[in-house]
Design a binder for these strands. Structure first.
Ligand SMILES: Nc1ncnc2c1ncn2[C@@H]1O[C@H](COP(=O)(O)OP(=O)(O)OP(=O)(O)O)[C@@H](O)[C@H]1O
Length: 775
DNA sequence: GTAGCCAAACATCGG
DNA sequence: GTTTGGCTAC
């Protein structure tokens, strides 16, 4: 039936049932984009009789794709077989993989290079061009190359206007040749090469145009020129493009995204239907008002009249901490209070501008023994041991990959040092081989002329033997079997698992990777593609019921009942590297806006008066963004005042200790619950080992403390008598009626356990929970 | 050829 | 404060 349309408001319904064509949905935060996209797909299939094979849906993360797939399956009560759904990168990778026969420079087994690999290639290009990598920093050059690719600029049309750009052009040219020789593409190539393929082969383009008659795109504001071109090509024939986006949430300008693609789209297609989604289903009025007040300061916005039916709400809490350490402690103690108020750890997220900030927060979680999940920072797939194993597998899959070859040829050490490698490189080059071809030749062709003797020869010969055996084995076997074979024959375990905690940890990571390879239906090629294209947020749900620590960027598209945004200081948010340029500053503001609008019920904003950079501590100024939130919506001392206070304090700090503590207790009163002032948290020696073994990468494997474990170790018992007693009937604003099962004094508050009729047993803080006794 | 040490660089955001 | 890579001593 059509009852799925009943779940939509009228704006959403207009969007979902719009006549196919060019459609632009401008969707405010929390306005149900996901719902509109999924229902649109179902609508196309059911009402318009469109086959899922003819639908392409592009999402921002793999996780979003999975979730939408799941949702559609529920709505249809059947698996949408044939539906193409994925990120730009994964969709392009699939197309390219299929079309390699039509590409001049690539074979089917091409691999995807990540940033570390890319840097190696840039360094090699510099060497080949006789350029000094001290004078021309590889990361800068790589950035230039990436920008060009995002703008669909190939080396031959790259216009150099000055010395540096001429260097970039040359390196770019050489870089592309090296990638091709390695049968490898970088992330940007996946997009650019797909567009180039379509440009060069109109017949192939036509095939895909006919296949993808209906195209839907999420997060349209964060598409770059190349992605935009891709969409325009694909949609050129049937003109059915359903783009959903919000200019106010554009936060990827720095990697080529341009929210003006929204305007471009409207200008290119004046007949496009534009539909606004303005009702926010997520946040309370107060949160939405605060967010609107923040974003209002940006120029050239499409006006949207956002509203919510969730009247009122909890005020935004603004906290000032003495330093970043105390900021972490404040977050922790606030979380503890919220846990007593019925929230669970998984309801909360702690956000920050840069990954380094996560460290202090993480340590606070570890000290307090609270469950958390860290997104990003040192990503799993970027860890040394994981990259090593992937390099082995990649080399077997694509022996042309010399970056992987160089990475593992002597890891574990097997007597192939710099000197030998140099000779190998020269010998390989003379024969037009890649290094892996050379060692295989050495091992399998006894006739071959070569420059090696003695130990070096033996080492290379052995390695070549192993490699060619793996390549043979890879043909018929599962990824898992190949994985095990490589581990065993390379002696990698002995090398990495050296008995230290760290070694053990690294081995565990390898076993975790092994788990991914377990899927029997996965080919080596698919496995490698999957691990290359996973994003940080993709595995988010794997740790149930722990608080999420993540950057504001990573938070885009997610929602949490409680959101903490930390580090609201000038230089941090807005970031110092974005404060010069008005456009970049506007993006910082959007980032803050994105953060606030992730919250359903509560927002906590914090800043530290002193923060440690590079090991030295400096005084800070509260973020200008704090002053944009109307006072009426906040609790905590007024941002304007504190700005001056902080400045004054910064200058007078060394003379005397100002009335910090009194000030502090004033601003913390808002939380009611106990909050210890962190005078000097012990920097114990066991801290670092704790961190490594306890949580950094464990969460996906090791169960974290159970949600009901006692986070709230009693601190200082204040002699207060209990208001509630066992058996008493009570009522709570949200949870309804229930019976008290236990009541005790914890910290300086009374902790009440109540069995509610509807929601089961909850533990609440009496001062917080507004429990009423009923007859 | 390799392990281990120390200095220099370092850290915005991510697929 | 941490990581990287270049250098030295075995
Ligand atoms: N018509 C509706 N009625 C009730 N709830 C809805 C409706 N539409 C969406 N929602 C709810 O609103 C919340 C936000 O939806 P969604 O995550 O799709 O927002 P979004 O538009 O993607 O937001 P953002 O742009 O901020 O990421 C979800 O919890 C969803 O269930």
């Amino acid at each position: 039936m059509t009852n799925y349309l009943d779940e939509l408001n009228s704006q959403q319904k207009t969007a979902v049932t719009a006549k196919p064509g060019r459609i632009l949905i401008l969707a405010g935060p929390g306005s149900g984009k996901t719902r509109v996209l999924t229902h649109r797909i179902v609508y196309l299939m059911r009402e318009m009789n469109v086959s899922p094979w003819n639908i392409l849906a592009v999402t921002f993360t793999n996780k979003a794709a999975r979730e939408m797939n799941h949702r559609i399956e529920q709505l249809l009560d059947a698996h949408p077989r044939g539906l193409t759904m994925g990120t730009f990168h994964s969709v392009c990778a699939r197309i390219l993989r299929r079309e390699t026969d039509n590409m001049r420079h690539y074979q089917r087994d091409f691999v995807i290079f990540d940033t570390a690999d890319q840097l190696q290639v840039v360094k090699r290009a510099l060497k080949e061009l006789n350029l000094d990598d001290k004078k021309f920093p590889p990361p800068k050059l790589l950035n230039g190359i990436s920008n060009a690719k995002n703008e669909l600029i190939t080396p031959d049309i790259y216009a150099s206007t000055n010395y540096i750009s001429e260097i970039t052009r040359r390196v770019y040219e050489q870089y592309q040749l090296t990638l091709q020789a390695n049968n490898a593409m970088d992330f940007d190539d996946l997009l650019m090469n797909t567009v180039l393929l379509f440009k060069e082969h109109p017949d192939i383009l036509q095939t895909y145009q006919q296949k993808y008659q209906h195209i839907l795109v999420d997060e349209f504001q964060d598409t770059n020129t190349t992605q935009y071109a891709l969409l325009q090509h694909l949609a050129a024939q049937h003109n059915n493009l359903f783009a959903v986006g919000d200019g106010d949430q554009s936060v990827y300008r720095w990697r080529g995204a341009d929210f003006r693609n929204i305007q471009r789209f409207q200008e290119a297609h004046p007949d496009a239907q534009v539909i606004l989604l303005e009702q926010n289903y997520r946040s309370t009025q107060i949160i939405l008002d605060a967010a609107k007040a923040v974003i209002q300061h940006n120029q050239n916005r499409t006006h949207k009249n956002l509203f919510t039916e969730r009247q009122g709400g909890e005020p935004i809490v603004i906290d000032e901490a003495y330093n970043d350490l105390e900021e972490g402690d404040i977050v922790i103690s606030t979380i503890k209070s919220l846990l007593l108020n019925g929230y669970s750890p998984g309801d909360m997220a702690v956000m920050y501008r840069t990954n380094v900030q996560s460290r202090v927060l993480e340590e606070a979680f570890i000290r307090a023994n609270m469950p958390y999940r860290l997104i990003g920072a040192t990503q799993f797939y970027k860890r040394r041991e994981v990259k090593d194993i992937i390099a082995y597998l990649r080399l077997v899959h694509n022996p042309a990959d010399s970056v992987s070859f160089n990475r593992i040829v002597n890891v574990p050490t097997r007597g192939i040092g710099a000197k030998t490698l140099q000779t190998l490189q020269a010998w390989a080059a003379a024969n037009q081989w890649q290094p892996a071809d050379a060692v295989i030749e050495l091992a399998t062709n006894p006739e071959v002329q070569h420059p090696f003797r003695g130990r070096a020869f033996n080492a290379l010969h052995n390695f070549g033997n192993m490699l060619s055996a793996w390549i043979t084995a890879s043909a018929g076997s599962h990824v898992g079997d190949l994985f095990d074979l490589i581990l065993e024959q390379s002696n990698y375990r002995e090398y990495i698992d050296d008995g230290t905690d760290e070694g053990c940890d690294r081995w565990d990571n390898i076993m975790e990777l092994r788990g991914v390879a377990n899927d029997p239906n996965l080919t080596l090629s698919e496995f490698l593609e999957q691990v290359a294209l996973v994003s940080e947020t993709d595995n988010l749900e794997e740790v149930p019921n722990s608080t999420t620590l993540l950057t504001l960027h990573a938070a885009k598209g997610l929602e949490y009942p409680v959101v903490f945004i930390t580090g609201l200081e000038e230089g941090m948010l807005p970031h110092s590297r974005s404060m010069q340029d008005a456009e970049e500053l506007a993006e910082e503001r959007r980032l803050f806006y994105v953060g606030i609008t992730r919250a359903k019920d509560r927002v906590y904003l914090s800043h530290a008066f002193r923060r440690t950079f590079y090991g030295t501590t400096e005084a800070t100024t509260p973020s200008r963004f704090l002053m944009d939130i109307p006072e009426a919506l906040t609790i905590g001392s007024k941002p304007k005042q504190r700005r001056q206070e902080s400045k004054a304090r910064a200058s007078s700090w060394h003379q005397s200790t100002p009335s910090w503590s009194s000030n502090r207790s004033q601003s913390s009163s808002s939380l009611g619950a106990s909050r210890r002032s962190s005078s000097s948290p012990a920097h114990g020696g066991n801290q670092s080992s704790d961190k490594k073994s306890a949580s950094r990468y464990e969460p996906t494997r090791k169960p974290l403390p159970k949600p009901n474990s006692p986070y709230d170790e009693p601190k200082r018992a204040t002699p207060t008598s209990c208001q509630f007693s066992t058996g008493q009937k009570v009522e709570h604003a949200t949870f309804g009626k229930g019976i008290v099962i236990e009541s005790k004094i914890t910290g300086n508050d009374e902790e009440v356990s109540v069995a509610f009729n509807k929601v089961g047993i909850k533990r609440l803080a009496a001062s917080f929970a507004k429990l009423a006794v009923v007859e």
